[in-house]
């Protein structure tokens, strides 16, 4: 990896200022960015660690929502969101492996928007709000394709606000080498309807399966999905699974998530 300067500011304002430098890059837990730097796929002049900002840490319940600081690790979400939003905590507790969960952060995962990451499914499947240092972005507007988001240069995810559903579940088939989802589906039932978000499957990154949402909003049962299939055209096909296999798995994971939702 090429060398860089490293700073660890204590406030969001200081971090924003540091990110104003040319080729400066925010660093969450580094569980994706550090491997990326090692491969020389990125060469920032300066890394701005966000893990020293106390305002961006922790899980709080705020009315009908759970609010998570952007610098909160997966482990903390898995433990501290378990009562308020068990579906979300269950997802966080199955990301990567224990050592990765001790470092990786929700803000880092959402800012990167890997097409196979877990958190984008929870954010989109919950209709979450991504709060940054300058504005609030609805999840439906935030995810804009593989590794692409609505974030501007130097914008920092300070919080993520998740409306708490009646029931939810995240079902995933892990790709055994990387531990990322081969395909995973987050299902959440709200008073206003059901949301179904799919990760790992599409070349366009996380997406909502609207036909399944409509069917499940009528009847929240795995049977309601009978006969529903997704076209394989936009699905990822690689040595781990063909596009048709992934399209099939979306149906399987959705049914499992509905059955397991609690």
């Amino acid at each position: 990896m090429y060398n860089f300067d490293f700073v660890k500011p204590a406030t969001v304002d200081e971090a924003v200022k540091a990110l104003g430098d040319e080729d400066a890059q925010a660093l969450g837990g580094g569980q994706t960015l550090i491997p990326t730097l090692k491969q020389r796929l990125a060469s920032p002049s300066k890394l701005v660690s966000l893990t020293g900002i106390s305002d961006m840490q922790g899980v709080t319940k705020d009315g009908d929502s759970v609010v998570i600081g952007g610098g909160t690790t997966h482990r903390v979400v898995a433990e501290d969101a378990a009562d308020a939003y068990p579906g979300l905590a269950g997802l966080a507790g199955r990301i990567g492996d224990p050592a990765v969960r001790n470092r990786g952060t929700i803000g880092g995962s959402l800012a990167n928007n890997d097409p196979s990451a877990c958190y984008p499914a929870a954010a989109l499947g919950s209709g979450a709000t991504i709060v940054t240092n300058t504005r609030e972005i609805a999840a439906d507007d935030y995810f804009q394709g593989m590794f692409t988001t609505a974030l501007e240069e130097g914008e920092i995810i300070t919080q993520v606000r998740f409306p708490i559903p009646k029931v939810s579940h995240y079902s995933k088939i892990a790709q055994p080498a990387s531990r990322f989802p081969l395909v995973a589906v987050f299902v959440a039932q709200y008073a206003g309807g059901v949301r179904v978000a799919v990760t790992g499957a599409s070349n366009n990154g996380v997406f909502r399966w609207s036909e399944a949402e409509a069917a499940l909003s009528q009847n929240f049962a795995a049977d309601a999905l009978e006969g529903l299939t997704l076209p394989a055209d936009d699905m990822i096909g690689d040595l781990h699974g063909t596009a048709a296999y992934r399209a099939h798995l979306v149906g399987v994971m959705t049914r499992r998530a509905v059955t397991a939702a609690s």
């Binding site: 482990r75 050592a99 990765v100």
Partner: peptide, 22 residues
């Protein structure tokens, strides 16, 4: 590449991969 875990150490009491932390 943070896959194998042979570098696991504890930082402030938590297991981390020392090859994926500066």
């Amino acid at each position: 590449t943070s896959q194998c875990g042979a570098c696991v150490v504890h930082v402030d009491g938590q297991a981390v991969k020392a090859c994926t932390m500066l």
